[in-house]
């Protein structure tokens, strides 16, 4: 429901003539809601800017938030939700900053003392316009948060999956934290790529830092081991804590013939012995026992 041209004109006038009073009333309303988490001066600046945005949108004849003239206002609103999202404000706290304009408007309207049917009707339709602005803010807040979360998830992925070369021909990947599908896939790909890059026939997957192993996590680890085997490398799983061993057995997860060791040190010892046997076979006559 767009505003009529008349209404748009009246609101633009109202915003212009009551500019300062409105800004003050609006800022006060928001300040109470945010309980001093933003300085009054800063809030005042933000609100004044927003108000100017509303004013120029309406002056430009925008009966609707989607109108061209409201472009600048939309920009301001998404910028507000962006900064609020990054500063850690909640969605409600962000959206009410816009809704508070209605309250401020009421204060300003009431000053003249004569509230008649026309002012009331105007107020309701203006409220609807502010509501749409509020919802728009809410939407962009959610979008900003989603971006923030996916950025962080990506950073976390980068941080938490190092593949280290432990010995000549031995690489290890210490897994830390919960292993969901996306992470398991990244870990898997990175481990396998490192095997190729370093020509290491042995890999140790250390799960000391994994808080819980469920069927899905086990499935991911098993697939990695099978893929490594297809490529010609051997995987050992280490860092299995007593509790996890119990879960694995309770869930009936079969690790088959995959070597499992309690500690990373045990796993390394196992690998070195195996590598030694292999090297020994090759240099059969030359090695002193």
């Amino acid at each position: 429901m767009a505003l009529s041209t008349d209404e748009v004109g009246r609101f633009a006038g109202l915003l212009e003539s009551n500019g300062d009073a409105l800004t003050t009333a609006w800022t006060d309303a928001v300040a109470t809601l945010l309980r001093g988490r933003l300085s009054h001066a800063e809030l005042h600046r933000q609100i004044a800017e927003l108000q100017k945005g509303f004013q120029s949108a309406l002056a430009g004849g925008a009966g609707d938030l989607e109108a061209d003239a409201a472009g600048e206002l939309r920009g301001l609103l998404s910028e507000l939700s962006n900064t609020r999202a990054r500063q850690g404000f909640s969605a409600t706290e962000t959206a009410v900053s816009i809704f508070a304009l209605k309250e401020a408007m009421l204060t300003v309207l009431g000053q003249d003392g004569d509230i008649n049917a026309t002012t009331l009707r105007d107020y309701v339709s203006f409220s609807a316009f502010v509501d749409r602005a509020g919802l728009f803010t809410f939407d962009s807040y959610v979008r900003a948060r989603e971006e923030l979360i996916s950025d962080q998830a990506e950073q976390l992925l980068e941080l938490s999956t190092p593949v280290v070369k432990l010995w000549e021909g031995v690489v290890a990947v210490p897994l830390v934290g919960t292993l969901d599908s996306a992470r398991a896939q990244v870990v898997m790909e990175r481990l396998l790529q490192t095997l190729v890059d370093t020509g290491s026939p042995y890999a140790i997957i250390d799960i000391t830092g994994v808080p819980a192993v469920d069927t899905q996590v086990a499935q991911h680890i098993l697939k990695t081991v099978v893929a490594a085997r297809l490529m010609g490398a051997d995987c050992i799983i280490s860092g299995i804590r007593p509790q996890i061993a119990q879960t694995i057995v309770a869930l009936g997860i079969e690790f088959g013939d995959i070597a499992t060791k309690a500690s990373l040190a045990d796993a390394l010892r196992h690998v070195l012995r195996k590598a030694d046997v292999n090297a020994g076979r090759r240099g059969a006559g030359r090695r002193e026992s």
Partner: peptide, 12 residues
């Protein structure tokens, strides 16, 4: 020899 990681993952 030389199976690529993406190929191994796909085969699994």
């Amino acid at each position: 020899v030389g199976m690529r990681p993406a190929v191994a993952i796909t085969l699994v």
